[in-house]
Simulated scan of single mutants.
Amino acid sequence: MASLSLLISTASHAIGPGGSQGDASASGNGQKIAAEVKISGVQTKVNGDPRTAKTGSLSPQDSNWTPPACWYEPKFSPKELKSLIEGLNSDKLFGAGALVSDTLKTYFQTNKYDDYNMAKQDKGMFWSAVVNPARKNDPKAMSCDRPPFWVDENDTPDEPLAVSPKILAEYAYDELPVPDTDIAMSPDGKQTVNLDTWVWLNKARFKPVSVTASLPGTGLSSTTTATPVALTLEPGTRDADLHPSSGECPISKSGGIGTPYSDEKKNQTPPCGITYLRSTNSTGPHHLKATLTWKISWKSTNGQGGDLPDGTFGTTTDVTVQEVQAINR
């Protein structure tokens, strides 16, 4: 069965989902054909401020969980599948000659379906395996090894990896446009031994973001939302005190993390920050890591929803610490 699935996967590069031709180009001798087709029909939309810059992907805090590497979705009508398989020019598309198309024809015509279910045209679809582009190098991407299978209209396939609202929500997890964790600090630039470093995040930039994933023609749609909840600081040296001592700065009721420094706060301890205890004259800069934790939730148009594993995304900043007698901010 796995080999049949691979054959279909290879063959489908000659034709796009829905039966349309991909953007194919052939070499002069007709022996090589390259085509670009959309792996999945799932579409995503970033909600809210389109200026939000994506600089990386969230890392799930649950190391045993990842978004799906592959799933099955409706892809071919009987006419489209028949046209695809019987229209293969094996000599040009494959080095295996007629073996590929003959194997596929045998399976769909005699072993499984009567003339590709042509009698059920417009009454269902063949579902086929697709790969999550963000997970294409994941070995799990090969786990969807079933050949295309028939699903009657309005039926739910008996297949755990069949596309569903939750799978769409998990797919959107990889598409969340989380910004780089750029922290603001005071003092800005070089730090000073035994002088508190105030750390905070820009509330205008670090706010909830969401992505809606949908599969046209199915009515399936889910929105996945990431909300910042805490900032974790790692000073890059043992010679430092953290504020708070855990290094975890929670989000405030106003939606901010940390507090911007101002002169009237000079005798206060920062709610989020670091006090470096030694200079970096002999060691070189410390690598201050700031990691933002995002709480992930999802909701579907059919009322389903829930939580997905929290995600984290961090940035490392080189910090130079100086030792001076007089302190001026």
Rank of each mutant, 00 (worst) to 15 (best):
D241K: 12
L242A: 07
D263S: 11
P244C: 01
Y261W: 15
P250Y: 05
G256P: 00
S246A: 10
T227A: 05
H243F: 15
T259L: 14
E248Q: 12
S262F: 10
L220H: 09
T223P: 08
T223K: 12
G236V: 09
G256V: 05
L220D: 09
L231M: 07
T223M: 14
S262E: 12
P250F: 06
K253H: 14
S245Q: 11
G236Y: 03
L233P: 02
S245W: 09
E234D: 14
S222D: 11
P260E: 06
G258A: 10
E264V: 10
A230D: 11
C249I: 09
P228V: 01
T237K: 01
A226D: 03
S245Y: 11
L231T: 01
D263R: 07
T232I: 09
I251C: 02
L231P: 00
E264L: 04
L233V: 02
E234T: 13
G255R: 08
G255F: 12
P250A: 07
P260Y: 07
I251D: 00
P235A: 00
L233Y: 02
Y261G: 00
A230P: 07
S262V: 05
I257C: 13
I251G: 01
P260V: 04
E264A: 11
T225A: 10
G236K: 04
T223H: 13
S252V: 07
A226N: 04
I257L: 14
A230I: 11
G247V: 06
R238T: 15
D239Y: 11
E264H: 10
V229I: 15
T237S: 04
L242K: 08
S222Y: 12
